[in-house]
Simulated scan of single mutants.
Amino acid sequence: MNKVLITLIRENQEEIVGRWLEEIKSIGHEKGLRIVSDQLFINTSREFIDLIIVNIDQTNEARSKSLNDFSERIIKLGWQLSYITEGLQKFRAIIHNWMKEREMDSKEQMDIMLEVNTWIDPIVNHMVNNYAGSWEHTVSMQKIALQELSAPLIPIFDNITIMPLIGTIDTDRAKRIMENLLQGVVQHRAEVVLIDITGVPVVDTMVAHHIIQAAEAVRLVGTKCLIVGIRPEIAQTIVNLGIDLSHIITKNSLRNGIEAALDMTNRKLVETKVEEIRL
C-alpha cells in the first residue's frame, strides 16, 4: 500500500471520520436504519469506519476475519447491504474531495485514487459475498422449513388422517404432497385420508390435476381419499374448467368430511347429554 496514502489517512483520521459520519447519516435515514437507537447507529457506523481505516494495512487473514465479524453483526441487525456499499462509496468520495481541497497535483491525486480503489474494492467484494452467502443460507433453511410444514399428514382417529393444505400449490409442493401422502398413509395404516383445501386460495387446472393425482395415488395403495373444503367459488371454478371429480368423494367442510370418514370405517359421531347433578 502507498505509504503516502497511509500517512495521510492516519494523520487526518479524525477529520475524515467526522465527514464520513455526517454523510452516513443520510444513508441511515433513507434505509430506515434510524429505527434503531441513535447511539447504536453511531456506534456501528464508527466501528464501520474504523474497520475501513484499520483495513488499510492489515494482513489478508486479519482483514478477512474483521470483515466477516462485522458483516455478521450487520446482517443480524437486519441492515441492508446498501448501508455497506453506499457507505464505502461515500468514503471513497470523501477521500477524493479531501485531496482536492489540499491542491495536490493531478498525477499525485491519480496515484492515490488508484491506491484507494485497490484498497476499497476488495472490501466491497468481501462484504457483498458475505451478505450473499448469508442470505442464500437463510433462504435455503427457510425453504426447507416451509417444505417440512407445507404438507403435514395428521392422524385424527384410528385409521383416519388429514392433510390440511394452506397457500398456493406449485409443482415442487405438489411433489411434496404426493410423497407425504403415500409415506403417511402407510406409516399410519390409514384407511381414509382427507385432503383439506379450505386454505388453498386458487384452484386452477394445474392445482386440480395435482390433487387428483394425489388422490389416485392414495387409492392405489388401498386407502380411500376425500377432498374437503370445496367452497362455492372453487366448485364453480372446477365446473367452468371442466374438471371431472365424479370419481372422488368431495365434501364442502372438514366436519362433513370427518363424519363421512367415520362412516366409512363403521363409526359415527354421537351426541351425549350430561345430566346436571344437583346436591
Rank of each mutant, 00 (worst) to 15 (best):
M1V: 07
M1Q: 06
L5W: 00
I9W: 02
R10L: 04
R10V: 02
N12D: 05
Q13G: 02
E14F: 02
E14M: 05
G18P: 01
G18Q: 01
I24E: 00
S26Q: 11
G28V: 08
E30C: 02
K31E: 09
I35K: 09
V36E: 11
V36Y: 15
D38Q: 08
F41S: 02
I42R: 00
S45H: 01
S45T: 03
E47C: 06
D50S: 02
I52F: 05
D57I: 14
Q58K: 13
T59G: 13
T59H: 04
S66R: 12
L67P: 09
L67I: 13
N68M: 01
N68L: 03
D69N: 10
E72W: 01
R73G: 03
G78F: 10
G78P: 10
W79G: 07
Q80C: 00
L81D: 00
S82L: 04
Y83I: 08
Y83S: 12
Y83P: 00
I84E: 04
E86C: 05
G87H: 11
L88S: 08
L88C: 07
Q89G: 14
R92T: 01
R92E: 00
I94H: 08
I94S: 02
H96F: 05
W98Y: 10
R102H: 10
M104F: 10
K107V: 09
Q109R: 04
Q109Y: 01
M110T: 12
D111S: 02
I112C: 05
I112L: 14
L114K: 06
L114V: 11
T118S: 07
H126F: 05
N130D: 00
A132G: 01
A132F: 02
G133A: 01
V139F: 11
S140T: 15
I144E: 06
L146V: 15
Q147Y: 14
Q147E: 15
L149W: 13
A151P: 14
A151N: 11
P152M: 09
I156P: 03
N159A: 11
T161L: 09
T161I: 13
T168M: 12
T168C: 07
T171D: 15
R176I: 14
R176M: 14
E179I: 12
E179F: 09
L181G: 13
G184V: 09
Q187W: 07
R189F: 08
I195P: 08
G199A: 12
D204H: 06
D204A: 01
T205D: 05
T205I: 09
V207S: 13
A208W: 12
A208N: 14
A214W: 12
A214M: 10
A217T: 14
V218Q: 14
R219D: 08
G222S: 11
G222I: 15
C225D: 11
L226W: 10
I227P: 15
I230C: 01
I234N: 11
Q236G: 04
Q236S: 07
V239Y: 09
N240Q: 08
L241E: 04
L241C: 04
G242Q: 10
L245T: 14
S246Y: 03
S246L: 04
I248Q: 06
I249R: 15
T250V: 08
K251C: 13
S253M: 14
S253V: 11
L254W: 12
G257E: 11
E259G: 09
M264F: 15
R267K: 13
V270K: 03
V270R: 02
E271G: 11
T272C: 10
V274G: 02
E275H: 07
I277N: 10
